[in-house]
Amino acid sequence: MKYLIVGLGNIGPEYHETRHNIGFMILDAFAKASNVVFSDNRYGAVGTTSIKGRQLILLKPSTYMNLSGNAVRYWMQKEKIPLENVLILVDDLALPYGTLRLKSKGSDAGHNGLKHIAQILGTQNYARLRFGIGSEFSRGHQIDYVLNPFSSEELSEMDEHIKVAQDIIKSFCLAGIDITMNQFNKRK
């Protein structure tokens, strides 16, 4: 059984460890813990690992956030991965910092990466793990906020939140989305 785990972010050193790149950060930590090395491939950096007989394709799209759907569709088709085995890791302004919410479907909530994925796949019925980045910005400064690095206070708690995100990814692949939502969405 195969799974596609997609961390959303923007490529380039200027975006490294910005709030909008939390999907890349989670996937990097997951890969490091699994001794996975990413290689440049079509539409992104790709790595593979296995957990209890399940193969995980880890993808960091190289398409920029607002074209993420192209990478998701390509790797789903290439690896013959069904929609129910796709998990998107994404930042969420509507959640307080560090809050993790797994959803089996839903709106894009104004997120350009999720919007493009839904447009390309023709559905909003795909799993996403939303990582709360908070909304500590003044009116009209949302773009500056998401494209800036996390604060030192946020970074001091980051490892703990990313560890939980990794546990959610594993549970999604091993126990399924319903059990994983019941177990993890009750926290914080």
Score class of each variant (00 low, 15 high):
86 V>E: 07
48 T>I: 05
168 I>A: 02
186 K>P: 04
27 L>S: 11
2 K>I: 08
71 A>T: 11
3 Y>E: 11
17 E>T: 12
53 G>C: 05
71 A>M: 11
181 M>R: 04
166 Q>V: 12
17 E>K: 15
128 R>W: 06
120 I>T: 13
145 Y>I: 09
9 G>V: 08
10 N>S: 09
11 I>A: 15
186 K>L: 07
182 N>S: 03
29 A>Y: 06
175 A>K: 15
169 I>P: 00
33 A>G: 05
144 D>S: 14
165 A>N: 01
134 G>H: 03
59 L>H: 05
164 V>F: 08
37 V>M: 05
83 L>G: 06
39 S>H: 11
13 P>W: 11
78 K>G: 02
57 I>A: 03
169 I>L: 04
101 R>H: 08
57 I>M: 04
12 G>C: 11
62 S>F: 01
15 Y>I: 07
170 K>A: 08
31 A>P: 01
146 V>F: 07
164 V>K: 06
61 P>Q: 09
136 E>H: 10
165 A>E: 02
127 A>E: 01
3 Y>H: 13
164 V>C: 06
28 D>H: 10
10 N>M: 08
164 V>Q: 07
64 Y>A: 02
163 K>V: 10
163 K>M: 10
124 Q>I: 05
180 T>F: 00
141 H>Q: 13
139 R>Y: 13
24 F>A: 00
73 R>H: 14
129 L>E: 00
